[in-house]
Simulated scan of single mutants.
Amino acid sequence: MDNSNSNSNSNNSHEGCYFNRLLEYTSDSVEFYPSFKNSTLFTAGTYQIEQGDTEYKERRKGRLYLFDIEKDNKVKELQSIDFNSGILDMKWTHHNNISQQYENDAPLLGVVMSRGELNVYRLNAADQEQGERRLELVCRNDVSLDPSILTLSLDWRTDNKEIVTSYSDGSLALFDVDGGAVTNRWIAHDYEAWICAYNYHNTSMVFSGGDDCKFKVWDTRTIEAEDGGRSNSSGATPIFTKRCDMGVTSIHCHPALENIVAVGSYDECVRIWDLRSMKQPLTQTDSLGGGVWRIKWSPSDNNHLVTACMGGGFHTLSSEDGTFTDLSIKSSYQGPHQSIAYGVDWSYTNSSSTDKQQYIGCCSFYDRCLSVWTP
């Protein structure tokens, strides 16, 4: 790959766009480094199916990028890692308190792949000669029962000792990071389990959403391990099951406000749930113009979240009074994107930062477009 343009932007005439670049493969995931000190670092993930007559699993490939936002509308590529498997989701480790984000800890990056792999990376210390950061592989594990079963999403428990993963066969699994093995696996949905997430305020509670149009809440203490987690259990029973009009694609527990969970669906709506009262959501938006593939709560403002809405572009949403009985579009962004909006994330910033600028990174699929904008 020619990296000669890694410090240049292709066209920043789009309103609000800080930087944009076309990646070599189709792009689907963006994650900012969860630290106020390194708030300009972010990763991007891609998933490509090559032309050919062999099975899809033999033709999938991907690339993981590490970028750093510089001044003067420049984003520098620090690293790229190639795989014979496509990247489907990435998440950094996190804590449940926005004000205590990794000032002294070393976050880990979990990456799930189309062949069922889970890769975990650590950001190394800056090289003394070049002064650039690099991702270093900590461990690699096969967490799917079969390479034809895609690992679709992941999330970290807040103690960073466990990862939940979801799969194209509708199952969920719990992965013990220290032990390096799956400990529990169960059938959660009738079709693809598009998304899984932890409750950041209750480490035994897991959320999932699937193509069967259901949002489910699980208590992992009631799910028994079977055969070292290598077989599926159909006997697991969720605490709650809520139905949407179409498949559930995105879930994010509020990192600072206990009991508040945002859920996105192919039906183009965001629903905010209060776990203390699950009869109906606190609010449901009108159509956002496309299926809500990713939702991310803001790390600097409890009342804001951002969405990647497939055919509807990217939106920041806000609850004006903080009760989440209302939720309205605060800003929208299309920029140079001409394809399915899949990946989105906020950078970390706070009032004491020397650079108070907050960025949103986003990517779209078929046009291979990655951009950074300023909300």
Rank of each mutant, 00 (worst) to 15 (best):
D2V: 07
N7M: 11
E15V: 09
G16E: 13
F19N: 01
L22I: 10
D28C: 14
T40M: 07
G45Q: 12
T54E: 15
G62R: 02
I69R: 07
L78F: 08
I87K: 06
M90G: 05
S99P: 09
L109P: 02
R115Q: 13
R122C: 02
E136H: 07
V138L: 09
N141H: 15
D146V: 04
W156S: 00
W156D: 01
V164H: 02
S168T: 08
D169F: 01
N184F: 02
N184S: 11
A197D: 15
Y198L: 01
Y200W: 15
T241M: 09
V248G: 01
V248F: 00
S250M: 05
A256H: 13
V263P: 02
Y266C: 03
V270D: 02
K279Y: 10
L282S: 08
L282H: 03
L282E: 05
G291D: 11
P299M: 01
S300H: 14
L305Y: 08
C309K: 01
G313L: 00
L317S: 02
S319E: 11
F324I: 02
S328E: 15
S331P: 00
S332Y: 03
S352Y: 12
S352T: 14
D355S: 11
Q357S: 14
Q358S: 15
G361T: 04
C362R: 05
S364I: 03
S371F: 00
W373C: 06
